[in-house]
Design a protein around this nucleic acid. Sequence first.
DNA 1: CAAACGATTTTCT
DNA 2: GAAAATCGTTTGG
Length: 201
Amino acid sequence: MKLRESFYTRKDVLQVAHDLLGKVLVTRFNGVLTSGMIVETEAYAGEGDKASHASGGRRTARTEVMYARGGTAYVYLCYGIHHLFNVVTNAENVPHAVLIRGIEPLEGINDMLERRGKERLSSSLTAGPGALSRALGIHTAHSGTSLLGEELYIEDRGIKIAPADIVAGTRVGVAYAQEDALLPYRFSVKGNKYVSKGKGL
DNA sequence: CAAACGATTTTCT
DNA sequence: GAAAATCGTTTGG
């Protein structure tokens, strides 16, 4: 079943990031259904987190979406090429978000392969935030989209990840955030091959 | 108005 | 394993 707004509006972004593991991210653009199980996430704890775009209360046209209420999609373009998909959490005006870093393909694999220009299924299809966004057809135009609608949402299919299989580690690509880069804000499913190969962990 | 940089991926050595 | 690609957002003049 589709996750309700109350799942996203909880105040503990780390808890939401943790709970998203094993959930299924679904997109249905132009009638094409593609989905995958979330195996890796990272939490960005808003104003007090130097690694967050909203660090220090920064609020610009781009980050405005992060200040929306939980259950909104925040898509950001990185390095001019990659679309990174985030889930906004917490209440309105609290810029917390969870970056989805890796999923395991479930449905619409052929469509995902086509979007990525690949022939066969391999772990690189959806391992990594930019890669999975492209496979699912998510781009910056979807920033601000509600996750409670019919085109883009997250489902709970009863998949349970054993606590022993959940690994917490440091985030990737945020070395500039100094001491905050060492926080254990990254969660992944142990041993899953669709977990991105970031540094550390 | 101009310059620098980045929550990454891909490709080449 | 290392370096390049590439452009919107942010920051400084």
